[in-house]
């Protein structure tokens, strides 16, 4: 019940936000055109959507068995993340370097906590969904395909990392200094986050990688949607900061999340003409093998 209520609230608010920005950013002409051509556009994106479906199903399975598998075979890196995080601010505070997350939380105010909690939940969903709507409204299919492949790549690599690396976020280790602000202040959101994610899935930060992906993609469509660029960038930065401010992720998670975003957008751009297929993967793999064996010979 509680979960249904919070999710309902989330969906309602995001749909409202989407409708509002669609009218402003996409514009009336494109909406009218899309209504006319939606069949062709679906057809042009269909194989990619199918691919995303496969990724999401794989992701669901991996998340169900992932935590158990990961405790069996994964590498425990919480301690290392803490050590690396402790070094990040060294250039600014060479004498007494604080933990990045602790330093960020030292600036906490109730207003900031409210803002970042809102961004972490609502802003994030909105930032990810809007590109799908907006790019569907474009006559050329490449941006939408690019987006789908980039999102899929994020998930695949992210889930793989979650199995290989087991780690807890700062709120679970630095319990005296860093607070899980989202969950202690806005407990209702925890019913959602707990249903879709697991607390040992912290490295890398998928919130960061998806948000940065959306922002990078916004830059690739700056000609069509110039207004979206500043909105996406501002939101993405806020989401990235929120993951650390709320004590959910280490700064190191966010850094690797951003790298993953960059990689995912590269992959997306590479496959915007033809979708990646199993056959193609096999071909590339055998090419790779022959290159390696050629070199060693």
């Amino acid at each position: 019940m509680r979960l249904v209520f919070v999710v309902g609230q989330l969906v309602g608010s995001v749909v409202l936000l989407l409708a509002f920005t669609t009218v402003i950013v996409v514009g009336r002409d494109r909406i009218v055109e899309t209504r006319r051509e939606y069949r062709q556009r679906f057809a042009a994106a269909a194989p990619y959507v199918g691919l995303l479906g496969v990724v999401l199903v794989a992701n669901k399975i991996a998340r169900d068995i992932g935590p158990d598998l990961s405790w069996l075979v994964g590498i425990r890196i919480t301690g290392w993340l803490e050590r690396i995080d402790g070094l990040l601010l060294w250039p600014f505070f060479p004498d007494d370097t604080p933990q990045a997350v602790v330093w960020l939380q030292s600036m906490a105010t109730p207003e900031l906590t409210a803002y970042f909690s809102f961004v972490y939940v609502y802003g994030y969903v909105y930032l990810l969904v809007f590109p799908l709507v907006a790019y569907f409204a474009l006559s050329r299919p490449e941006p939408l395909r690019r987006t789908i492949v980039a999102y899929g790549t994020n998930y695949l690599v992210g889930v793989l990392c979650y199995v290989v690396f087991v780690a807890y976020g700062p709120r679970n280790l630095l319990a005296e200094q860093a607070e899980g602000l989202l969950f202690s202040q806005y407990t209702q959101y925890q019913f959602v986050t707990d249903a879709v994610n697991h607390e040992t899935n912290v490295f890398p930060s998928l919130h960061t990688s998806m948000a940065v992906t959306a922002a990078l993609l916004a830059w690739t469509t700056r000609e069509e949607y110039p207004l979206w660029v500043p909105v996406a960038v501002a939101l993405a930065v806020s989401v990235v900061v929120s993951t650390m401010y709320l004590g959910i992720h280490w700064a190191t998670d966010a850094i690797f999340g951003a790298l993953l975003a960059w990689f995912s957008v590269r992959v997306g751009t590479r496959f915007e003409e033809t979708p990646p297929t199993l056959d193609g993967a096999r071909r590339r793999f055998s090419t790779l093998l022959s290159v390696i064996s050629g070199r060693t010979r």
Binding site: G79, Y168, R171, N172, L173, A175, E176, G180, E199
Partner: peptide, 19 residues
């Protein structure tokens, strides 16, 4: 290495361990 529970399971243990 000091093994302990994460704060979500037992905040006291992890606090004692980090100290």
């Amino acid at each position: 290495s000091i093994a302990t529970l994460p704060a979500s399971e037992d905040p006291y243990a992890v606090r004692i361990a980090t100290r």
